[in-house]
Design a protein around this nucleic acid. Structure first.
Lengths: 250, 250
DNA sequence: GAGTGGTCTAGACCACCGT
DNA sequence: CGGTGGTCTAGACCACTCC
């Protein structure tokens, strides 16, 4: 696997990155399988010729990613839970989700227009009133069957001259190219039932359940760069959330 | 605020914990508001009389919790996004969610029984077939109005002698007391429409949308300790997910 | 008690951002 | 350029788990 482990942007690959990638490669090889215990942190530090702090940082990343679990006083183990569920926590690209579900991803452009932002849009995107935004309505398909209808709104100021390129490829890669990569997002979830228009577009009966997601995407500087509304057909892929009980305070 | 910052179980409060809590208290006081920059890590280390590594660990927790953002080369800032939305990521207690929404939480026991686990339950909870589990069906209310119907299943072996106490108070605090605190959970989300039974229990029309959550709760050792099925009435409180784009590798 | 991960320190240097 | 967060080290001690 030559460059399976590219990172976003052009961030320098640190020692921690290299150690993490080496460990991950081990996990995907046949060296380890579910439930196996890793060597202790001291041994790993010696093997990779680095400090234990560096090992801990690398392992932390793999724990966050769901690959490993640490048990105080016992050891570090390879996760037993199946990977490749589609956890909302660390995935932004639906195209990738559809592909991982074993379906051929496709998309159909429904509508694309540049217009002044509505009051709600301006507030969510922290723009002056009436500021122009590009609105793109699309239907995503898996093996030709509709799975998501989405309306994405992006400030024209963010897009610069790349206005016409939107819709052809992933919005996220486009934004990467513009130097305003999305790194964080806040999604709000609500169940709804399909009205006539949604039913027609998603090819489901009127009144059938859909998951509605309203999402704001932020770039590394914390600026909102996109507002999305999505309607998901259930049961095509399983949407999961990994939850924790370690919020500080509260 | 006397004991606002209690932690799960009886884990020792570390220096990092104390620093994090002190910072959080500052954030909730009027000392800082959205967008403000914190003192740099060196100054904080001096103020709290600890090393910079300790400060970084404390701040990391607050960044994970969505309270702060770090910008390399620039500084650490108070998040602009509204806090106190109910992000699924870091909250497990619905009672707390309802209370934070400004409603008076209540619960009504619908059904409680000890019975052999079904095959699905045994698999999810990693139990031998037919192993006895306690099943509790409850309706949670906010200001008396139904907001969630839940079915929680807990292995009797986990509960020990505390079988009768379940239902009176929070399941999570009960498990805390038994030394099997829930620290992690995986939730699967699906929109559904209310059938007759759900409609009656949640006091909504048949066919109205509900959010169905299937969740497995794990203790610190990674053992599954509870399987929950929940049906949420939408719009009572906003369910959010904070999403990231930093999965290592992949 | 032996072995593991968890916390903490003091200090060094690097990479990024703004002026 | 100065100031910020990011990475990294070497070593110490603590807390948990299991035998």
């Amino acid at each position: 696997m030559p460059d399976q482990f590219t990172h976003r942007g052009s961030r320098r690959r640190t020692l921690v990155d290299r150690v993490r990638e080496a460990l991950l490669a081990d996990l995907f090889s046949n060296e380890y399988s579910a439930g196996d215990q890793l060597p202790n942190e001291g041994e790993l530090a010696e093997r990779f010729d680095c400090s234990r702090a560096t090992i801990r940082e690398a392992v932390r990343g793999l724990v966050d990613g769901g690959y490993l679990v640490r048990r105080h006083g016992t050891g570090t183990f390879v996760t037993a839970v199946p990977r490749h569920r589609h956890t909302l926590n660390a995935n932004l690209s639906y195209t990738a989700m559809i592909r991982e579900a074993g379906l051929e991803p496709g998309r159909r452009l429904v509508h694309k227009v540049t217009r002044p932002a509505t009051d709600d849009e301006a507030e969510a995107l922290q723009l002056p009133p009436q500021e122009p935004v590009l609105s793109i309505e699309r239907i995503r398909t898996g093996d030709g069957v509709p799975v998501v209808f989405s309306v994405d709104r992006i400030p024209v100021a963010v897009l610069g001259g790349a206005l016409d390129d939107v819709g052809d490829s992933s919005v996220y890669s486009l934004l990467d190219g513009l130097g305003t990569s999305v790194t964080e997002a806040m999604a709000s979830l609500r169940p709804v039932v399909a009205d006539k228009r949604l039913a027609r577009m998603l090819d489901v009966p009127v009144g059938s359940p859909l998951l509605h997601i309203e999402q704001v995407d932020f770039d590394a500087a914390g600026r909102p760069v996109m507002l999305s509304a999505e309607w998901h057909v259930p049961d095509v892929f399983e949407l999961c959330v990994s939850r924790r009980r370690d919020a500080p305070g509260l």
